[in-house]
Each structure stands twice: as C-alpha cells, then as structure tokens.
Computed example of a mutant assay.
Amino acid sequence: MLTSKQKKYLKSEAHALKPIFQVGKDGVGMKQANSINDALKAKELIKVKLLDTCPQTVNEAALEISRLTKAEVVHIIGHTIILYKASEKGIYQI
C-alpha cells in the first residue's frame, strides 16, 4: 500500500508519461493484463487510457487491472489510470 507522499511523488513522475496502453470495446482481459504486467516489470510506472467504447467504468477497469497485475493504482484522472508496481530494478526510489 502506498502512502499519500509516495502517491504524490509518483503522480509527479507520471505527469510527463504518455499512455502506453488503451482499453477499448473488449474491456480488460487476461491477454491485455499480461501485457500491462510485462510493461510494469520493465517500467514500474505506466499510464493506461480507457477509450469511450470501453464497457467498464474507469474505476472498474482500474480495479480489474490492479487485481490481475497486483499493481497499485496511483491515480485516476479522467479516462487515464496511473499504475505502479515495484520491480527488482527499483527505478523509483519510494
């Protein structure tokens, strides 16, 4: 579980990032969750964008991705989810 200071730091780091995944009409599935998990292992901090065609709400999608990847939801803004998962590399010192 991240503290509020850690979340604030990660939000500031994520500000410059572009979303690298888009969730569309199929919603969040295992195949997409595996791809997101691989990206989290490599980068630790990523953004995921929900398209208007997504059948899930942004909160439902964030919870589903978090459950499937065991990542922390740092912040949700609009249709964008910021996710963090610590890796062995330790890119972000929190």
Rank of each mutant, 00 (worst) to 15 (best):
residue 1 M to H: 09
residue 3 T to V: 06
residue 4 S to M: 07
residue 4 S to H: 09
residue 4 S to E: 13
residue 5 K to N: 09
residue 6 Q to M: 05
residue 6 Q to T: 10
residue 7 K to C: 08
residue 8 K to G: 01
residue 8 K to S: 09
residue 9 Y to E: 15
residue 10 L to Q: 12
residue 13 E to D: 05
residue 13 E to M: 02
residue 14 A to M: 01
residue 14 A to C: 07
residue 18 K to V: 13
residue 20 I to T: 15
residue 21 F to G: 13
residue 21 F to A: 13
residue 21 F to D: 10
residue 22 Q to W: 02
residue 23 V to M: 05
residue 24 G to L: 00
residue 24 G to Y: 01
residue 25 K to F: 09
residue 25 K to R: 08
residue 27 G to V: 10
residue 28 V to W: 08
residue 29 G to N: 14
residue 29 G to Q: 12
residue 29 G to R: 14
residue 30 M to K: 13
residue 31 K to L: 15
residue 32 Q to H: 08
residue 32 Q to A: 12
residue 33 A to Y: 11
residue 34 N to I: 12
residue 34 N to L: 15
residue 35 S to W: 05
residue 36 I to F: 00
residue 36 I to D: 12
residue 36 I to R: 12
residue 36 I to E: 11
residue 37 N to Q: 05
residue 37 N to G: 05
residue 37 N to C: 04
residue 38 D to G: 06
residue 38 D to W: 09
residue 39 A to M: 02
residue 40 L to S: 08
residue 40 L to Q: 08
residue 40 L to H: 07
residue 41 K to W: 09
residue 43 K to N: 08
residue 45 L to P: 08
residue 45 L to G: 12
residue 45 L to N: 09
residue 47 K to N: 03
residue 47 K to C: 00
residue 48 V to A: 04
residue 48 V to C: 06
residue 49 K to F: 15
residue 49 K to A: 14
residue 50 L to C: 11
residue 50 L to K: 03
residue 50 L to G: 10
residue 50 L to D: 04
residue 51 L to I: 00
residue 51 L to V: 00
residue 51 L to A: 06
residue 52 D to P: 11
residue 52 D to K: 10
residue 53 T to P: 04
residue 54 C to I: 01
residue 54 C to T: 10
residue 54 C to E: 04
residue 56 Q to D: 14
residue 57 T to Q: 00
residue 58 V to L: 05
residue 58 V to A: 10
residue 58 V to G: 08
residue 58 V to Y: 05
residue 59 N to S: 04
residue 59 N to Y: 03
residue 60 E to P: 00
residue 60 E to R: 08
residue 61 A to H: 03
residue 62 A to P: 10
residue 62 A to Y: 01
residue 62 A to K: 06
residue 62 A to W: 05
residue 63 L to M: 06
residue 63 L to K: 13
residue 64 E to P: 03
residue 64 E to N: 06
residue 65 I to R: 03
residue 66 S to K: 00
residue 67 R to L: 11
residue 67 R to D: 13
residue 68 L to Q: 02
residue 69 T to S: 05
residue 70 K to Q: 13
residue 71 A to W: 12
residue 72 E to D: 14
residue 74 V to M: 01
residue 74 V to W: 13
residue 75 H to G: 07
residue 77 I to V: 09
residue 77 I to R: 03
residue 78 G to C: 00
residue 78 G to Q: 07
residue 78 G to E: 09
residue 79 H to Q: 13
residue 79 H to Y: 03
residue 79 H to G: 09
residue 81 I to C: 04
residue 83 L to Q: 11
residue 84 Y to N: 01
residue 85 K to V: 03
residue 85 K to F: 06
residue 86 A to W: 04
residue 86 A to K: 15
residue 87 S to D: 11
residue 88 E to W: 02
residue 88 E to T: 04
residue 90 G to H: 14
residue 90 G to E: 11
residue 91 I to Q: 14
residue 91 I to S: 14
residue 92 Y to G: 05
residue 92 Y to K: 11
residue 92 Y to R: 08
residue 92 Y to Q: 14
residue 93 Q to R: 15
residue 94 I to S: 10
residue 94 I to P: 06
